[in-house]
Amino acid sequence: MSFMQDNQWRVKVGLAEMLKGGVIMDVTNAEQARIAEQAGACAVMALERVPADIRKEGGVARMAAPKIIREIMATVSIPVMAKVRIGHFAEAQVLQALEVDFIDESEVLTPADDANHVWKHDFRVPFVCGARNLGEALRRIAEGAAMIRTKGEAGSGNIVEAVRHMRTIISQMRTLTTRRSDELVHDSKELGAPLELVRWVAENGKLPVPNFSAGGIATPADAALVMQLGAETVFVGSGVFKSSDPAVRARAIVKATTHFNDPKVVLEASEELGEAMKGLDIRQLDEKELLQTRGW
């Protein structure tokens, strides 16, 4: 697509490239950000409450307070990301004015628009968006997302949805590489995604932006699992700071993400860990409790 040659687009995707092979951790204050950086996180995500607490406490979840984000930015030298509600372009404008390094238009917060996402090409700050399947991923990229993360089910401590979403996207991409040009028009219609992007994926066998994994990663082995399935980096939300030993667990997940193909290192990282977050059985959740169905 024409925007893929723009310099603004290239530096956005460029930052996403730099985050590969690492762990991006949710933090709610400067102290947690410091712990994350010291554990080897390649970026932190500032938010008001971690997904597990949003789920428990309910209410409207919004962009974090600028003061907290500022404190986090002043505390760590790694990139700082922050979340906005789906479609809330004014929150995104505020975060750009604050000069955060990346914006996550996230289903974890309460959506502000029930039909539209932010038109991300209008921004100079790069965006990451969640996706459950290829069509959703390509619609977000068409709107200007410079990074895709599978949604998983945030705050659940359960990896099953992250696995489902990563497998779905990877297998849909694999299928596209086997299709004829005339069939791709049909695929574009079925996926609800622009033909140009569908053709790009068919030719290259991957997304035009880095593809990360999120939503339910709680252990080093969880990180190794999604990396082996094709994730290029992992986001850990509640998994670190809802465990009994945040600093040690954070370090262990960082280690397992780099050495995802080396079970001995993943074993080493898994030893001497305290309790992981408790976690939820997704099948016991009501449809309306799911965060992953937010986003259009």
């Binding site: 490239e17 730099m18 985050l19 590969k20 092979g21 690492g22 950086e37 080897g40 996180a41 390649c42 970026a43 030298s77 790694i78 990139p79 960082v254 780099t258």
Partner: peptide, 11 residues
């Protein structure tokens, strides 16, 4: 390569 030097330094 490029990336986060703090993370790389740990390893």
């Amino acid at each position: 390569p490029g990336g986060e030097s703090t993370t790389q330094l740990h390893f």
